[in-house]
């Protein structure tokens, strides 16, 4: 589904990402974890066309993504949810979803667009799924942080992207909300490939039904199941600081 090779990007001399290889299958749910500044969001930025890397290749369904514009990549079937919720804060929740709805999106169709009943059904369906059905007439900007996250996920869902890049979906959510989000993501992965970036280990445990990748200082440290990763000494060092390894070095 997604094949990444030799990806390298640096900002003003600082290497932000140096990824030898990375790939996910169709309908896989992959979680990427890693400390701050590990290059997780940068990785997503590259895949969806927001950032241009110095070298490398990113293939989606066999097509090279690098060098394409955001809209093209989105049209190929890559959806993105940002770390900071990016929604249309001046519009109602309903209008947000309407704009997210898959279909022709050129100027003329929008200009002469008439709401079809199946479109409306689809919007209601997704709104129910993410739990925004009672907020359809609310102005999106006035939603709580958690609901904004859901709204953005809903927009990505309505787009029906084959690959969804979800950046920190549970940030700012209560445990109950986070669990609901987790279930939603697991559910999504039945029909879509999903990549999730997350910090909250409890949340990661819930959604890590498949592989977890650990990104540190721009490089892939390890990949494996949640248990494997959790017991990996290197990963522990990274998260708990290098105190352990420093001690070990001192002993030897």
């Amino acid at each position: 589904m997604l094949e990444v090779k030799d990806l390298k990007v640096s900002f003003g001399g600082l290497v932000a990402l140096n990824l030898d290889t990375f790939s996910i299958r169709k309908n896989e749910l992959r979680v990427i974890i890693g400390p701050n500044g590990a290059g997780k969001s940068t990785f997503m930025d590259i895949v969806c066309g927001k950032t241009k890397p110095q070298q490398g290749s990113v293939k989606f369904k066999g097509l090279e993504l690098l060098g394409r514009k955001e809209v093209e990549i989105a049209k190929l079937g890559v959806g993105r949810k940002f770390q900071k919720p990016s929604i249309f804060s001046g519009l109602t929740v309903y209008d947000n979803l309407l704009l997210g709805l898959d279909g022709p999106k050129d100027v003329f169709t929008s200009y002469f667009y008439k709401l079809a009943s199946y479109d409306k059904d689809r919007i209601v369906e997704v709104a129910e799924k993410v739990g925004l059905i009672d907020d359809l007439t609310m102005i999106a900007g006035s939603l709580s942080h958690g609901k904004k996250q859901w709204l953005e996920i809903a927009i990505v869902m309505l787009q029906d992207s084959e690959l969804m890049l979800i950046d920190e979906p549970a940030a700012g959510m209560s445990d109950v909300e986070a669990e609901k989000t987790g279930n939603l993501l697991c559910d999504l992965s039945k029909k879509h490939s999903v990549i999730v970036i997350e910090h909250d280990m409890k949340f990661v445990e819930q959604i890590a039904i498949e592989k977890v990748s650990v990104l540190v200082r721009g490089q892939m440290l390890t990949e494996g199941t949640f248990q494997e990763v959790r017991n990996n000494q290197e990963v522990i060092d990274c998260y708990l600081g290098s105190a352990n390894s420093a001690q070990q070095k001192a002993h030897s």
Binding site: K50, V71, K75, F82, L99
Partner: peptide, 9 residues
């Protein structure tokens, strides 16, 4: 940017 990622030109 959200518009772009939602396939709008």
């Amino acid at each position: 940017s959200r518009m772009r990622f939602t396939k709008y030109k």
